[in-house]
Design a protein around this nucleic acid. Structure first.
Lengths: 260, 260
DNA sequence: CGGTTGTTTGAATCCGTTCAATACCTGTGG
DNA sequence: CCACAGGTATTGAACGGATTCAAACAACCG
């Protein structure tokens, strides 16, 4: 999620191996801040195409020059906001939520370091969901108009953007499969294994981590009630698949968990 | 869905007002066929950006020159197939299905005339779902590589492609909301109203139409069992919201149906 | 330290599933 | 043309997984 230098530093777990060092980030909630550089960002392997030259990075540095600090619970953008930029999570984590007229809420995704936000806004020039910080977080601002210009000259970047959009489509399809066909137990198992994979890809432990979201937010993502989430955690504990203590998660037997 | 000249012509309902005339299409299942022309296709307002010049259309005609006829039940592409083209439905209709290792199936969407297929394949150069024809259908083949070239010269087309991808993301988010938060009754109501809107946008009746999919396929899309779909149809009938006779649907009271 | 928020667990209830039987529709072949 | 077959749709009754409501507990913050 974040390096120890960022945010509240109350996390004694995930950053034990700070494999991906990040710049120190002031805790003040300054809306924008210069100084971010793609060219030497530790996250660049996650949000940029792999084969970029030094001059390519220079071009991106000229575009993505601001970051935004978002306090826990605050929004990066809200449904209805004019779409102007994509965002990359530089530190911390977010949830994206769509709210129906009648108040129904669905968490459409959780985004951690190196993942991208805001692609829903391209269609209608308006965001269709809220992006809320799960902890004090930092996002890189990627102005869409300028990104397009870069894409016109940098074909690999253009291709990468198409792929990111398509990836989001595939991710959501998978989530639909989960919501449409799986039991509460299976949904939670898949959710934990998916999170584990993403943490591992970032150099953190894939078996021990801290959840940044509440049981309610997990339930709202998986289409089940928070009580059910809690019951399933208890069941996993009983069956020696996962150990939990509050937000702390230890996946004991990933293989069996996948077969639930 | 299709004009009377296409397919089995067993549909006495939807094409009663053939507002969108289509070219006659031979019933033989020829894999590819020349002769399609974007410039004078009746569907062009649906799958292309609005403000194109004659020369712009000429460019597209040079690219999208083949169509493919797909028999009911046959696939346009399958999960694992190499991604090479996007597809636009020219006549008929399709469903897209993801199949989990364990056999679980989820219908991620239904595509009718003028809608687009295949965007899931961009991410990994492989399709991730099956696209199956619900009736004898015709799809325009849009070679992705060549489309990219056109996009590089035709900015409005490029923007449109980005928007189409984003639109798909938004559509899937909405579907997730449905799967995650709504009762069986509400899901079916929303589904029917959504279909009605799309038919209406194509010049057909928004209150009377024929379903092209079975109860099982509807259920598989809505995350409920086919028996439940049937029960909800019966409930709507009892409450004078919708009248059905097999695949024939008449939405009697759309306002109340939306409030279910 | 007290108040707030988040988590766990139990018991009763309910919605959707499962299993099963019957009816229907459509295309096929006698 | 009618009868038949096979897939599709409807309906009932019993069951079960998830929800609801409620209460107790734990963790966190000012």
């Amino acid at each position: 999620m974040s390096s120890t230098s960022v945010c509240k530093a109350t996390d004694p777990v995930a950053p034990m191996r700070p494999v991906i060092p990040l710049y120190a980030v002031a805790r003040t909630d300054v809306p924008k801040q210069r100084g971010a550089r793609c060219s030497n960002c530790a996250m660049r392997t996650l949000c940029l195409p792999p084969e970029l030259s030094a001059t390519d990075y220079g071009r991106l540095d000229a575009i993505i020059c601001t970051t935004r600090h978002v306090r826990q619970g605050d929004s990066l953008y809200r449904a209805g906001d004019a779409f102007q930029s994509l965002y990359a999570v530089r530190a911390g984590s977010f949830k994206t939520v769509i709210v129906h007229r009648d108040g129904r809420e669905q968490v459409t995704g959780f985004q951690i370091t190196g993942e991208t936000l805001g692609m829903d806004g391209i269609a209608s020039s308006e965001h269709t969901c809220d992006a809320i910080a799960l902890e004090d977080s930092v996002a890189c601002i990627i102005p869409y108009g300028q990104l397009q210009k870069v894409c016109n000259e940098l074909k690999s970047m253009q291709q990468y953007l198409y792929q990111m959009l398509s990836n989001e489509i595939v991710r959501e399809s998978t989530q639909m499969l989960m919501l449409g066909t799986m039991s509460a137990e299976q949904r939670l198992a898949q959710f934990l294994l998916n999170l584990a994979t993403r943490f591992k890809a970032r150099g953190y432990s894939g078996s021990e981590f801290n959840l940044r979201m509440t049981r309610e937010e997990i339930g709202c993502h998986l289409g089940i009630k928070l009580e059910t989430v809690s019951r399933m955690f208890s069941r996993f504990q009983r069956d020696a698949l996962v150990e939990t203590r509050g937000k702390r998660v230890h996946i004991v037997d990933a293989e069996r968990l996948a077969l639930v």
